[in-house]
Structures are given as structure tokens and as C-alpha cells.
């Protein structure tokens, strides 16, 4: 009897407790909600500010290029809206300089740079990520250490090397020095290290050779990293100015970045509007490439394990 009595007391007091704690948790939930909203607003404000910061040069160039009347070019913020819109400057880009020739040069050079960088990074990263051999870490550290060197250090040795190889004033001469990069090797090594061992073992049991494992399992599974590396490499190759301008002397072999700069700026420059139109046309292919690669950025490992 007394036992059940005390049990009742315990029950009722615990019920009171739970009511109070419910109230408390409601208050807490409210303040937590407010906190979350605040944090979200902060995040968005930051992102929007960053978006404006990164977009404004492009928007400015586009607006100036589209203005047939260049009088407002230097008026802020009026210049961000085209004055008397028209495509006149864009048409003149094609008549004032061999734009299509430069575009073709840039495309060919970027294409081979991307292919070579991806192939070399994949081949270099695989042993660093997946095979055990003495000196592995030392080699990796040495590769990463090259990131510390300013790229100008390479100019003279590379120039002399290419001269001996007879590659001066050629496409290859302009791009070969960019083929092996620490960044690509690092990125692919990280990607390969994330692949579950079971997946590789499964391929091994299925009869794949090491190279087949690499190209038919590891590379497809690492598609997001390869897409990122491709875009990164494209932007670098497309915008590379200094090295091609040193190596290439024939005008017909120049890439866009060098061509636009040589033809449209300097003492004989026609107009800022023309440069802006040329810049917009130069950036466009990169944006298109990005739009096409974007779908590879989703995780390639979904569904592999568990």
C-alpha cells in the first residue's frame, strides 16, 4: 500500500516537472529559431556581397561593350547600364582583329593543356594515394613545395629548355610547362584517397589490372574532382598571358589573352568599348564550359558502399 502511494507521488511530481520543462524548451526553441534566422540572414548578406564583388567587373565590361555611345563609360554607377544599347562594338571586334584565329589558338592550347594536366595528375596521384613505396611522402612534399616558388622563377630555365627542344614560337612551347602541376596532383591524390578500399579490391577480384582499376573505376568515381581540375586548368590556360607572350612571336599563333592585349591596347588603341566587348567575348567560352561541366560536380561515390 505505502509503496503504491509513494509511486503516485513520484508520478505526479514528475508530471509537473515535465510540464515546466516543456515550457522552458518552448522558450528555448523560440530563441533558437531567432538565432538561426539571424545566422541565415548574415550568411546570405555575406554571399550577396561576395557575388556583387565578383560579378561587377564582368557586368561593367558587358554594359560598356553594349553601349554604342561610350560617353558614360567612366560614370559610376551609370556605366553599369548600357547607353544606347547595340552590338556595334562586338561586330567591330571581329573586323579590327583576327578574333576567330585567336579563339581557335586559345581553344586548341587550352584543350591540350586540360587533357595533359588531367592525365599527368591522375597518373602521378595514383601511386601517391594508393601504393606503398619508400620515399612516398618525401616525393609528395617535394611536389607540394613547388607551390611555394613564384612562377617567374621558371621563365628562364623553361625558355632555355624549350629553345634546345626547338619548341619556341609553337603551341606546344606555350603550354608544355603547365602540364605538370602540384595543384592537380594534390587534388587528385585527395580524391583517390577517399575511394573505399573495398571498391578497389572488388575491381581487383573482378580481374582488373592496376591501370584498369585506375581508368575504369577510380577516374570515373572521381569525376567531380576531375571536373574541378578541368575548370581550374581551363581558366589558367585561357588567361595565361605572360608565358605565351614570351614564347610565341608569330601573330597567327597567339592565344586570345595575348592577342586582345596586343591588338586593342597601347598607343594605337581604338577605344575602351572595343576592349570591353573583346573581353566579354573572351570570357564567354569559359562560362559555357562551366555550364556543361557543372553536372559532374555531384558526388561520384553515391551508392558505392553501404
Amino acid at each position: 500500500m505505502s509503496a503504491s502511494h509513494s509511486a503516485e507521488k513520484v508520478l505526479s511530481s514528475s508530471a509537473k516537472d515535465s510540464a515546466a520543462s516543456k515550457k522552458r524548451s518552448r522558450n528555448m526553441a523560440n530563441s533558437r529559431k531567432a538565432q538561426r534566422a539571424l545566422a541565415l540572414a548574415g550568411q546570405y548578406a555575406g554571399l550577396i556581397a561576395f557575388a556583387i564583388f565578383t560579378c561587377f567587373p564582368f557586368v561593367w565590361a558587358l554594359a560598356v561593350g553594349l553601349s554604342t555611345d561610350p560617353s558614360n563609360t567612366w560614370l559610376f554607377p551609370r556605366s553599369f547600364w548600357p547607353t544606347e544599347p547595340g552590338l556595334m562594338w562586338f561586330e567591330r571586334v571581329f573586323t579590327e582583329m583576327p578574333f576567330l584565329k585567336y579563339l581557335k589558338n586559345s581553344t586548341v592550347m587550352s584543350f591540350w593543356t586540360i587533357v595533359s594536366v588531367v592525365v599527368i595528375s591522375v597518373l602521378a596521384a595514383y601511386p601517391l594515394a594508393r601504393l606503398k613505396f619508400p620515399g612516398r611522402n618525401l616525393i609528395f612534399v617535394a611536389i607540394i613545395a613547388t607551390l611555394m616558388l613564384p612562377s617567374e622563377v621558371n621563365i628562364i630555365p623553361n625558355f632555355i629548355t624549350l629553345k634546345h627542344l626547338g619548341l619556341l614560337d609553337s603551341y606546344w612551347g606555350a603550354i608544355i610547362p603547365n602540364f605538370a602541376g602540384a595543384f592537380g596532383i594534390f587534388l587528385m591524390k585527395q580524391a583517390f584517397e577517399q575511394i573505399p578500399q573495398d571498391l578497389i579490391d572488388a575491381a581487383r577480384v573482378d580481374g582488373a589490372t592496376e591501370l584498369q582499376i585506375l581508368w575504369r573505376v577510380m577516374v570515373p568515381v572521381s569525376a567531380p574532382s576531375i571536373a574541378a581540375l578541368s575548370i581550374f586548368t581551363l581558366v589558367n590556360a585561357w588567361n595565361d598571358y605572360l608565358w605565351p607572350s614570351i614564347v610565341i612571336t608569330t601573330r597567327d599563333k597567339l592565344p586570345l589573352a595575348v592577342g586582345v592585349f596586343n591588338d586593342l591596347t597601347g598607343p594605337f588603341a581604338v577605344s575602351t568599348s572595343l576592349v570591353m566587348a573583346a573581353i566579354v567575348l573572351t570570357v564567354l567560352p569559359v562560362l559555357i564550359f562551366f555550364a556543361f561541366t557543372q553536372r559532374y560536380f555531384i558526388s561520384g561515390l553515391d551508392g558505392a558502399v553501404k
Partner: peptide, 14 residues
């Protein structure tokens, strides 16, 4: 001449 089934399944996701 063996085939192995792994705890994690290890299917090729692509």
C-alpha cells in the same frame, strides 16, 4: 577462381 561479396557491397557507382 574466387568471387567475393563485401560487407560494404562495393558496387561501382558509375
Amino acid at each position: 577462381g574466387i568471387a567475393m561479396v563485401f560487407q560494404s557491397y562495393a558496387l561501382y557507382p558509375h
